[in-house]
């Protein structure tokens, strides 16, 4: 398992999701990705995107004013 970070700050809907999607494409099952955002819409959108693609949201928090969504990649072979 490897941890990755994605800086999606100052991007607004739907770009945080688009960048998350592009990043996850290159990750393996079990990897964790932490996405930093400033658009509050990401709090709905990234978990919704994870739900439909079968990835797991580990936690959503706020850190120094940024929204942080941590997800675990799950891919079917």
């Amino acid at each position: 398992m490897t941890r990755f970070t994605l800086d999606a700050r100052n991007l607004i809907c739907p770009l945080p999701v688009v960048r998350t999607q592009e990043k996850v494409e290159h990750l393996d099952s079990g990897d964790e990705l932490e996405v930093l955002c400033t658009d509050p819409g990401a709090l709905h959108d990234i978990p919704a995107w994870c739900r439909i693609h079968g990835h797991q949201v580990v936690e959503t928090t706020e850190r120094s004013g940024d929204i942080v969504v941590r997800l675990r990649v799950q891919k079917l072979d």
Binding site: I12, C13, V17, L43, H44, A48, I52
Partner: peptide, 27 residues
């Protein structure tokens, strides 16, 4: 695209945060 953007930009504390409708539909 209309949806999302302007709302995202203009959202203030206490405002209802807008969702991405396409994602909502898929969900």
């Amino acid at each position: 695209c209309v949806q999302g953007h302007t709302h995202a930009i203009r959202a203030r504390r206490g405002d209802q945060v807008t969702r991405n409708n396409a994602l909502w539909v898929a969900d």
